[in-house]
C-alpha cells in the first residue's frame, strides 16, 4: 500500500498531469467493476453463482437512466437499486426455491436483460449526471485530491460498501453465517441457520449492488444510456471476484489494477509513446485475467457450496 503510494507520487513528480489522468481513469473505471464484484462476492460467499451480473447491471443502468430522466437523478439511482434487487430476487427464486441450474438462470437474466433494454430503449432523452463532491482540504492535495477526493457521490459510496462488506463478512455473526452457508450449508442448517433465508437475503442485496453499479455507468459516469452499454463489465467482475479470492478489498484492488493498466496504456497511446490499436487495449484486462488464473488457478478455492442447491 505504502509502496504503491510512493510509486504514484514518483510518477506524479515525473509526469505530472499524466499520472493524475491515469489514476483518475483507474478510479473511475474500477468503481463499477468493484461494485459489480461485490455482488458476485455476496452471492458466491453464500453459495449462489451469479453469472447474470452483466444483465443486472444493464437493467440497473437502464432503470437508472430512465428513472433519472423522469424523476431526477436521485430517483434514478433508487430505481436502479430496486431493479437490481428485483432481478436478484428472481435469481434467488430460481436458485433456491426452484433449484434451477444457476448458470442457466444467470444466462437467462443476461439474455432477457439485453433483449428487454434494447426492446424498450427509446433514444433522445438527456439527464444531468450526479455532481462531484469536493471534500474540503483533502480535495486540495496534490495528486490524491483530484483522484480520490473530488469524485462523484456513488464513487464514495462504493468505497463505503467495499470496506463495510469486508468488515461485516469477517467480523459480524451475519458474515460468519454467510460463509458457513456458502461453505457447508448442511452444517449451517444443523446449527439452526436458515440457509434459504440467507441465500435470498444476500442474493437480493447483491442484486441491489449490481443495479447500483449500472446506475454508476449511466447516471454518474456517462449521463446516458446505450444498448449493451455494460460491454462485458459484469463478466469481468466475475473474474475480479476470483482474482480477489472472494474478499471485498482484494477484489477492489484487482479492479483498480485493471483500471491502472488500461489507463496507463491509454495515456501512452495518447502521448504517442506507443501505438497499440484500441482493440488490444480493450483485450488487456481479459488477457491478464487468463494469465493470472493460469498461474494461480490451482491455488484459488471458491466457496465449497457455490452453485449447489440446498437441500
Amino acid at each position: 500500500m505504502a509502496g504503491s503510494l510512493v510509486a504514484a507520487f514518483a510518477a506524479y513528480g515525473i509526469w505530472g498531469f499524466r499520472a493524475t489522468a491515469v489514476l483518475g481513469f483507474a478510479v473511475r473505471s474500477s468503481t463499477p467493476l468493484a461494485l459489480a464484484a461485490m455482488c458476485g462476492i455476496l452471492c458466491e460467499r453464500t453459495g449462489v453463482i451469479d453469472i447474470g451480473i452483466e444483465g443486472q447491471m444493464l437493467l440497473g443502468a437502464f432503470a437508472g437512466f430512465f428513472g433519472a430522466a423522469a424523476f431526477g437523478v436521485v430517483a434514478g439511482v433508487f430505481a436502479a437499486v430496486a431493479v437490481g434487487a428485483l432481478v436478484g430476487a428472481f435469481l434467488a427464486l430460481c436458485a433456491v426455491t426452484w433449484r434451477v441450474d444457476q448458470i442457466i438462470a444467470g444466462a437467462v437474466i443476461n439474455i432477457a436483460a439485453a433483449g428487454f433494454t434494447s426492446f424498450l430503449y427509446r433514444p433522445g432523452r438527456v439527464i444531468g449526471s450526479l455532481p462531484a463532491w469536493r471534500i474540503p482540504l483533502l480535495g486540495d492535495l496534490p495528486l490524491l485530491g483530484p483522484v480520490l477526493f473530488r469524485a462523484q457521490p456513488l464513487t464514495y459510496l462504493t468505497v463505503v460498501v467495499v470496506i463495510g462488506l469486508q468488515v461485516t463478512l469477517v467480523r459480524t455473526p451475519w458474515g460468519r453465517r454467510t460463509t458457513a452457508v456458502g461453505e457447508h450449508p448442511g452444517a449451517a442448517d444443523t446449527v439452526g441457520i436458515d440457509v434459504a433465508r440467507y441465500r435470498y437475503g444476500n442474493v437480493v442485496a447483491g442484486g441491489a449492488l449490481a443495479g447500483l453499479a449500472g446506475a454508476l455507468l449511466s447516471v454518474e459516469i456517462t449521463g446516458s444510456f446505450d444498448r449493451g452499454m455494460t460491454a462485458g463489465r459484469g463478466f469481468l467482475a466475475l473474474a475480479i471476484v476470483i482474482m480477489g479470492r472472494w474478499k471485498p478489498v482484494a477484489a477492489w484492488a484487482a479492479a483498480l489494477f485493471f483500471g491502472v493498466l488500461t489507463g496507463l496504456v491509454n495515456q501512452l497511446n495518447f502521448g504517442q509513446v506507443i501505438d497499440i490499436p484500441p482493440q488490444f487495449v480493450a483485450m488487456l484486462p481479459y488477457a491478464t485475467t487468463i494469465v493470472v488464473l493460469a498461474i494461480f488457478g490451482t491455488r484459488v478455492r471458491p466457496p465449497a457450496a457455490a452453485g449447489r442447491p440446498y437441500p
Binding site: 453469472i51 448458470i103 462485458g232 463478466f235 469481468l236 466475475l238 473474474a239 476470483i242 482493440q279 488490444f280 480493450a282 483485450m283 481479459y286 488477457a287 485475467t289 487468463i290 488464473l293 493460469a294 488457478g297 490451482t298
Partner: peptide, 18 residues
C-alpha cells in the same frame, strides 16, 4: 490448472471479438 472454463471462455469471447 483447475481454472473454470466459464471464466476462461467468457474472457476469450471479449478477446476474440476485439
Amino acid at each position: 490448472r483447475g481454472v473454470h472454463e466459464v471464466i476462461v471462455t467468457i474472457m476469450l469471447n471479449t478477446i476474440l471479438v476485439n
